[in-house]
Design a protein around this nucleic acid. Sequence first.
DNA 1: AACGATGGTACACTATTTGAACCGATGTGA
DNA 2: TCACATCGGTTCAAATAGTGTACCATCGTT
Lengths: 263, 263
Amino acid sequence: MSTIEKALGLLEHFSAAHPEIGLSEFRTLTGVDKGTLHRHLTALRNCGVLEQNHSTRAYRLGPAVIRLAIVREKTVPLAKTVKSHIDRISDRVQELTHAALPEKKGMTSIYAKDAGSHGTRVSFDEAEILPFHATSSGIAMLAFSNEEFVQSVLSQHLESYTAATATDISDVEKLIAKARSSGIASVDQSYEAEVVSYAVPFFGPGGDAMGTIAIATPASRMDAALADKCINELVAAGQNLSHDLSGQTPPSIAAIWAKRLEN
Amino acid sequence: MSTIEKALGLLEHFSAAHPEIGLSEFRTLTGVDKGTLHRHLTALRNCGVLEQNHSTRAYRLGPAVIRLAIVREKTVPLAKTVKSHIDRISDRVQELTHAALPEKKGMTSIYAKDAGSHGTRVSFDEAEILPFHATSSGIAMLAFSNEEFVQSVLSQHLESYTAATATDISDVEKLIAKARSSGIASVDQSYEAEVVSYAVPFFGPGGDAMGTIAIATPASRMDAALADKCINELVAAGQNLSHDLSGQTPPSIAAIWAKRLEN
DNA sequence: AACGATGGTACACTATTTGAACCGATGTGA
DNA sequence: TCACATCGGTTCAAATAGTGTACCATCGTT
């Protein structure tokens, strides 16, 4: 693996829950030698990708990533487009709705909205990492990605989060197969207890899945009527969002989705 | 220079005006060997920092930067804080107001607002790179950065943008000295003709300048009264913004600013 | 069909990266 | 106060990964 990939891999350890990481902590997180780590971290700091807390010397993400994100958004106005669809669904279904993009370790949510006024609601943070095998977003992504990527994900350790988490490769493959045939992924309390969710992918130019949109609700509130509503909204949004991003929905999925909306 | 820095340096070539860059174009931009470039670019692509246009094979910024920016913003809520101050100034002065952060090649604007309803207005793009020596933001930043950084900037070629651009080191140093003594930087049509601007830095914890806020107006509209208004707004915002970011304004500047606001 | 672009690849050479050992500062408990 | 632990950071010989030349494949154009 190139040093570039090793160094950039370090950035994956930063999250909203873990925004600053010191040298020693990095060593325990990664197992990489201290000297090497230090050189990588200072290189990243010199580029503005990281900066250091003056008092603790711990590293955190730096200002350079802001510019990159702005330029990216001007290049591919994904956040803006996604936002409008999520807002619409959230408004109509009155449940937590979010969009996520694939990263190495899982899907990372880039926007979430909960318009609901219910007493119980699903808690959720942007930039959270959602494991592929245990969340509807992850299954939806895997179901419409190339087999090579699926296998690389499934060959890693499949952590268990609740009693219902699928931790066997064959079980996850069943979820994937079901998502492929139905055009929609669903999981029942497999990542967080008392939370069920549905997800669909959206497609970019070239017909490959770019990311997912999902609805998560408390298990107690989910029934056949709500499930139907969620699925219809997601399928419609999957089509429209792909279209807005000048993407191409693969014909096979387009057919399944169209059939779903007829009913 | 480490390979990490070389590779990440490639990202500087992407901008809103130049969102996709092919291999050969990169070669002419950087002068780096094609083989090396290709390996660096694919490494960045593997990390999600870049992605490739399917049809043209050209590279553009990838989805990974979105997550990084979200996490960064959750770590240091700069954009949010800056936005509220810019909106306020823009509203009160009715002229184009923006905030910028230092990058290697110059200041990059992260947020801009033009509340003005005038016939003439300054055109402006976010993520634009503003050269240090020719813009008020750049001078404001240099004036309150360490001397080592100032010299590294001044020792590079100082491009001329208008007839009024300061291209001599000594001329730029005069602008810097003036900004240091007055607590505010100003340039008169030195980057774009018919545009004059004022800028102040804001400070982070540790008392070092994190970035700048600036007002730019058409030269025709600027007079002593408007200049006074701009300066007062900027100075007040420089103080407040530094405070909101839990930063420390260095005592010397704090004194100059306080004096300014007394009048 | 030859040409000139383009993006991408293979391999010998060598320069960069690596990691064990070391340094200095800070903090802590006996 | 002292010894000890822990922190971030540095050094330098050994080894690995990076480099650039040369070459290949594909696409459009002439």
